[in-house]
């Protein structure tokens, strides 16, 4: 049981490494400033909907903080706050027993837009960003949403099976 619990954290860490060290090599140079995938965040959204939003909140805060510390340019906190808060809210809104695929994909789109908007808002608040929201929307938020959508489609089946197995096994253990 203990092994399975750490598997998720290990998977997220692996994705975090891939996000920074592998993925930039596969994005064409022209798109590198416009496509900033948050793969870890997408998996956390899956956890929020198919497992437990409190766990997702914790994971979001943790991996957001990791992102903030490792790529510490201006300040610590935007990713941690954005990822934790968005994951919790998405878990709250989109959890109806067994969420179907289209609704999950809609949740991914909403969550992706929300995270990017929160980040934009925070940088705007501290006067580190001087663009209009509409510019940011067209520049990276919409491309990000499309990329996240495709990624979510690709990992949907294995990830949902894995997460629901975890929760069902746990509830069985609680019953026993």
């Amino acid at each position: 049981m203990g092994k399975r619990r750490y598997l998720l954290v290990l998977l997220l860490f692996g994705l975090f490494i891939a996000e920074g060290s592998v993925l930039p090599w596969f994005i064409p140079p022209l798109w590198q400033t416009r496509l900033i995938p948050h793969l870890v965040f997408i998996v956390i959204l899956f956890v929020a909907v198919y497992e437990n939003r409190h766990k997702a909140l914790l994971l979001g805060l943790l991996f957001g903080l990791l992102q903030d510390v490792v790529y510490y340019g201006a300040m610590i906190g935007p990713y941690s706050f954005g990822m934790g808060f968005t994951a919790y809210l998405i878990g709250l809104i989109f959890k109806f027993g067994r969420t179907p695929l289209p609704l999950m994909l809609f949740a991914i789109l909403t969550g992706s837009l929300m995270l990017d908007s929160i980040l934009f808002g925070i940088y705007k608040l501290f006067e580190l960003d001087h663009h209009a929201y509409s510019w940011a929307l067209m520049n990276h938020m919409v491309p990000n949403m499309i990329f996240h959508f495709i990624f979510a489609l690709a990992v949907y089946v294995p990830l949902r099976r894995y997460l629901e197995n975890r929760t069902s096994r746990r509830s069985q253990e609680e019953k026993a």
């Binding site: 920074g20 060290s21 900033i36 790529y71 340019g73 201006a74 934009f120 960003d129 990276h140």
Partner: peptide, 14 residues
């Protein structure tokens, strides 16, 4: 270089 973050407001390398 060991990793890249392309966040538009905070582009950084490690």
């Amino acid at each position: 270089v060991i990793s890249v973050s392309n966040d538009p407001d905070n582009r950084s390398l490690v």
